[in-house]
Every structure is written in structure tokens, then in C-alpha cells.
């Protein structure tokens, strides 16, 4: 597995070219979407109510787009200007902030109904950014304390990340606990090399609903997990289907494109019979 967090600071690694490459890669789109659906499931929000969520390390909006789809409002923060730029181009609905999560948040107490973070925390284990910074434990402490304050009581934060070792999981969970969080780690498909995913499930107060840490998903045969993961997503999708009207239908997109052309924005794609078509899942 590649470890971009060891290559360069995030805002350098996710420069203009990588930000586009990352966002347009259909395999990445699928994986990030799957994990976001799973994070939403673990968030355990009250059904059929729009929530106000924080997307930590929102990047170009691949995770936030799923929040849009599910009818939630969200605020996204990210340290990479190029990723945020792509998020603007993709017209995600969330409010975006250029922010280093290792410097902490300034949100007032109880601002959010929940938080998600998809594939970000491993970056905090490496101190390097091109901005002033401090040690990873210091940054993690600042991050978790201010996150805990920004969440309402009770609520949850679900953070999927790629640890390199159990020691890293240990470090992160102990700092989160000191910041006041309950909860623990959920590992999906622990025996599958490809599909294994680590979710930090943090509770504020009782966490809303059952207090035990949810169970990880299991697959019977090694490496079949991936397939099941995607099947599950289809199920989840159809379950939520029809609940909310899709605002990004063809008319809406055409209207937006027209608006951008009027404003003189360059590179607005031509309209075609494919405009606004339903995107199929890619396998």
C-alpha cells in the first residue's frame, strides 16, 4: 500500500495535479464513497432527519458528496488548497475552510451533530506541514480536545484512517480518551488484506444509542470482503433511494453550467446526452 503521508506534507502532496488525479480516479471514488456510507452507518444519526456534520479533511469532496446525497448539511475543513479548489469546481454543498486540523478548531461548543473523517488521521501522525507545527502528540491533543468541544452531547465522531501499526492505534485512542471521548476502534474485514478498514468510533456523552462500540464487519472468505462491501453499499443506497429528491438532476446541472459560462468561467464541459446521467457504480 502506498503511504503518501511519508512522501510530502499534505498541502504539497495534494497539489493541483494530484488533487485532480485523486478525485477523478473512479476506484478511489468508489472506495471513499463506501467508507463514507459505513461511517454514516456508524454515526447512528436519527433516521430521516438532516444533520449538521463536520467533514474533517474533506479534500475535494468525495466524502462530502455522499453527505449531500444523504440530505445532510456539512462543513468541511482541509489543509490542501488544491483539493478545496477541486471541491469548489465540483460544487459540493458544504461550507469549506482552509485549516490545519493539528492546530485545532474554533467552533463553539455543541456546534455539530456528528463528525466524520475519511482517510485523514494518518497524516497527523506525521508532523510535517509547510506551516508552523508541533509534535504529533501535541497536534493530536489539540485536535481531539477542540473536536470534542465542537460536538453536541450526545453524539459521535467516526474517523476512518490507515494506521501502520497497533502502536499508532494505541497512541491515537489514548489521546482521544484523554480529550474526553468514549468509544473505541472498529475493524471491518480484519482478515482481508484489501478490504480491512479501521474506524475510530468516538462517543461524546453516551454517543447516542447503544453505548457499546459497534461490531466490525466480517467476511467468511479472505479477500471476498471487498465484494461484500460494495454489495452492501448498493443495499444502503437503495434503502435511502427516493427519500430525498435528487437536486442535481439534468436541468439543475444545465442551469449551473449556463451560470458559469455567463460568469466567464473557463472549461465548463459541453452539454451532451450524458449530462446529469445517473452515475453507475464502477467495479
Amino acid at each position: 500500500m502506498s503511504r503518501p503521508e511519508l512522501v510530502a506534507p499534505p498541502e504539497i502532496y495534494y497539489g493541483d495535479i494530484e488533487a485532480k488525479k485523486y478525485t477523478n480516479n473512479s476506484r478511489i471514488q468508489q472506495i471513499q464513497a463506501d467508507m463514507t456510507y459505513r461511517a454514516l452507518e456508524l454515526l447512528n444519526l436519527p433516521p430521516d432527519e438532516p444533520a449538521f456534520l463536520l467533514d474533517i479533511g474533506c479534500g475535494s469532496g468525495l466524502s462530502g458528496e455522499i453527505l449531500d446525497e444523504e440530505g445532510h448539511m456539512w462543513v468541511g475543513v482541509d489543509i490542501a488548497p488544491s483539493m478545496l479548489e477541486v471541491a469548489l469546481e465540483r460544487e459540493v454543498e458544504g461550507d469549506l475552510f482552509l485549516q490545519d486540523i493539528g492546530q485545532g478548531f474554533g467552533f463553539r461548543p455543541g456546534s455539530f451533530d456528528g463528525a466524520i473523517s475519511i482517510s485523514v488521521l494518518q497524516w497527523l501522525l506525521n508532523a510535517e506541514t509547510s506551516h508552523p507545527t508541533s509534535s504529533p502528540p501535541h497536534r493530536l491533543t489539540r485536535f481531539f480536545i477542540t473536536l470534542h468541544a465542537a460536538l453536541k452531547n450526545p453524539s459521535r465522531a467516526i474517523l476512518q484512517f490507515y494506521p501502520t501499526s497497533d502502536d499508532q492505534i494505541q497512541l491515537i485512542t489514548s489521546i482521544a480518551q484523554k480529550a474526553g471521548f468514549g468509544g473505541g476502534v472498529v475493524v471491518d474485514y480484519p482478515n482481508s488484506k484489501k478490504a480491512r478498514k479501521v474506524f475510530l468510533c468516538l462517543f461524546v456523552g453516551g454517543g447516542g444509542g447503544a453505548q457499546q462500540v459497534p461490531k466490525g464487519l466480517e467476511s467468511e472468505v479472505e479477500d471476498e470482503g471487498k465484494v461484500q462491501f460494495e454489495k452492501r453499499r448498493e443495499r444502503l443506497k437503495s434503502r435511502s433511494g427516493g427519500k430525498r429528491k435528487n437536486i442535481k438532476d439534468k436541468d439543475w446541472i444545465l442551469k449551473k453550467k449556463e451560470l458559469y459560462r455567463q460568469r466567464g468561467k473557463e472549461g465548463v464541459p459541453n452539454d451532451s446526452k450524458y449530462t446529469g446521467r445517473k452515475r453507475k457504480a464502477v467495479f
Binding site: L84, L88, L96, F97, L98, Q99, D100, Q103, G104, P132
Partner: peptide, 15 residues
Amino acid sequence: SNGIPNMLLAEHEIG
């Protein structure tokens, strides 16, 4: 800028 607030802090401002 472009609708995005820059929340980054200078070294002496980091808590």
C-alpha cells in the same frame, strides 16, 4: 478568498 476562509495560524498563535 473564493468563499473559503483561511483559518491557518501563525506559529506564535498555535495553542
